[in-house]
Design a protein around this nucleic acid. Sequence first.
DNA 1: GCTACAATCTCCAGTCACTGGAGAAGCAAG
DNA 2: CTTGCTTCTCCAGTGACTGGAGATTGTAGC
Lengths: 138, 138
Amino acid sequence: MLAIGRLSKDSGVKIPTIRYYESIGLLPPPVRSEGNRRMYPPEAVRRLRFIRHARELGFEIDAIRRLADLAQDPAQPCCEADLLARRRLIEIEEKISRLAAQRDELVRMIGDCTHGRIEECRVIDTLDDHAKCLHARH
Amino acid sequence: MLAIGRLSKDSGVKIPTIRYYESIGLLPPPVRSEGNRRMYPPEAVRRLRFIRHARELGFEIDAIRRLADLAQDPAQPCCEADLLARRRLIEIEEKISRLAAQRDELVRMIGDCTHGRIEECRVIDTLDDHAKCLHARH
DNA sequence: GCTACAATCTCCAGTCACTGGAGAAGCAAG
DNA sequence: CTTGCTTCTCCAGTGACTGGAGATTGTAGC
């Protein structure tokens, strides 16, 4: 049985975050010691690492809840996990293309900047008039 | 003088958002009509469009506050605006590379997936064991 | 046993940039 | 004068934490 500090170190998840995950039902409430401290079984480390890894890939808590449930049940078909992953992938690709459009626009603004006064500043000027900007998705 | 609904339509910023911008001091409080309605001068449209455009490029409110102040004062040097834009550009590039790493990882997970049972699911399996994943920044 | 000090507890407020609902009041047209 | 639209203020919720206050509990050394 591990105390929360130990679990935190072993899993790489901060203590308040572990308590938060418990409060939203993502991590099952552990047993308590006599003095009311949370005492975790060793499997908790794995569960938390799973969660952390999924968070690092940008999955939302709800998706992770599903993914973690599926991981518990090895006989289930894997199509739902697959779907969740594909959905996340699409999200990522949309985000990247939005960011790429922003980047292109900023590069153009900065590149054009004459480093003089505001009145001739391309950065301010472009912000001021959307028409002066590539109508890219941003 | 424009009522808030008109300003909202002309600027493309929602009514509650306009009120929010006023509450945080990003948009100066307009005069009020006898019946306590906000009445905006025509310049408000431009200011709000400026803000909206900057938000679309992902600038934070604090940065926009500075940018909008600079735009008011055309005699100022443009280096600060330039710096703010460069900073945002760096942020974007970091975000893109983080997302690209996530994307690569997900593509690998999904591609490997045999579409069978969870026990052999590469998606779940990879989440379960970080060591099985490219140690890319994600 | 006593004293530090570390670890943990609960509760609550704050982050960021909105968003939307409730309930009241004002305003224009028919 | 009524109907319906717009606007008003206030407040709570979003997602996923994060951190502080103040109280307890546990542990190590003396």
